[in-house]
Amino acid sequence: MRLRTRLTLWYGGAFFAAGAVLTTVVYLIVRSRIAANLPQPGESLEALVQARAHLGMTEEQLTDLIDTVIERQEAANAATLQAVLLGSAFALGVIGLLAVGFGFLMAGRVLRPIDAITDTARRVADRSLHERINLRGPNDELKRLADTFDGMLARLDRAFEGQRRFVANASHELKTPLAINRTLLEVAAAEADAGHRVRGLAANLLAVNERHERLIDGLLTLAGSDRAPADPVPVDLADIASHVAAQFAHEAAEADVAVEVSAEEAVTAGDAALLERLVANLIANGIRHNRPGGALAIATAAVDGRARLTVVNTGPIVAAYEIDALFQPFRRGEGRDRIESVKGVGLGLSIVESVARVHDAALAAVPNRDGGLRVTVEFP
């Protein structure tokens, strides 16, 4: 039950309880006053003695007359009490319903700042930390809550921005010495007097250098993929899937993995470069974490107005509880550090998750019964 509904019910229940108590008190007071105004038996006899000579009636006639008057008075009093009770109950019901409606409106007005905080928190969680609530109004509890939330967002924004800036700067600074190392190694290996051992050592060092360059490129992409696209453009996932699959055809052939592409039109809005990196990482992951003679199926389609990308590969069996670890940086399914993996640097699926998040896409990975994964990404 929503908080607004609960507040309305509490307000309405309190009003009806107070109204019922007030109606009961009024009823008891009216009944007490009416009972006090009725003549007592002794008063009736005294009135009979005083009025008998003036009215010219016998004592029996006067007694009957007084009994008749008392009976009619009691009937009128009972009718009055019933009318008071029914009228009070009807008025309580009508005013109570009006009070419930008024309480519903007032609860909505009071909770409106909380809805604004919730909407902002949802947008911030899905997109970026730059948005603020900026609640206007009196300096009450809700205003202080909104200001505290804005302050927390500002601190988080500065922290994440500093982290992204550090990763980007460090990656840029590291790319220069790696490029120099690659050049020196290639020159040394190309020397005429370079021996077999020198060339072998240079080849091994070039492989290590290349792995470090891939790591830095992955860190740069991961740092830049945490921001929502500034100017989203229409992108057809079918074109991206076909283009990227063709680029990985040679690697798939070397790994003895059969690639099947079913590219139906699936248009979404976003950053074309980031979406291409997402598709490329999924295809590379499906090839490199496969088995000889395995298969990789890539499909794009529009389902219920949403662009869907599905990548299914064979490979080793993955437990369901290991799925979350696959999307963490530098982690593999068994929970071990995978920086030393020759198949990658451990950032592929982390970049996929980051790109999907900033595009408001739903990412799901399900292990196949015979091994491998089925990864589905649905874009707005």
Score class of each variant (00 low, 15 high):
344 G>W: 01
313 N>Q: 03
310 T>V: 09
286 G>Q: 08
143 K>V: 07
288 R>S: 12
53 A>G: 12
125 A>M: 09
130 H>A: 11
141 E>I: 09
355 V>E: 13
8 T>S: 05
290 N>H: 01
221 T>R: 11
194 A>C: 11
278 L>D: 08
304 D>S: 14
319 A>P: 13
68 T>S: 05
5 T>W: 05
191 E>C: 14
366 V>A: 03
174 L>I: 06
36 A>I: 00
193 D>Y: 11
375 V>Q: 07
54 H>M: 12
193 D>E: 14
38 L>F: 08
40 Q>R: 14
31 R>C: 00
329 P>C: 00
46 E>P: 08
290 N>G: 01
331 R>I: 07
296 L>D: 10
332 R>N: 15
215 L>C: 03
288 R>Y: 05
332 R>H: 14
232 P>F: 05
91 A>C: 13
251 E>Q: 14
236 D>N: 09
239 D>R: 01
19 G>P: 10
67 D>W: 05
238 A>K: 06
362 A>T: 15
5 T>S: 07
19 G>A: 12
190 A>K: 14
251 E>G: 15
267 V>F: 00
318 V>F: 03
322 E>L: 01
265 E>Y: 04
147 D>L: 06
191 E>D: 15
210 E>H: 07
125 A>E: 08
326 L>P: 15
264 E>K: 13
16 F>C: 02
294 G>C: 03
35 A>W: 04
30 V>A: 11
73 Q>M: 07
122 R>H: 15
307 A>P: 10
363 L>D: 06
125 A>R: 03
311 V>M: 06
109 R>I: 13
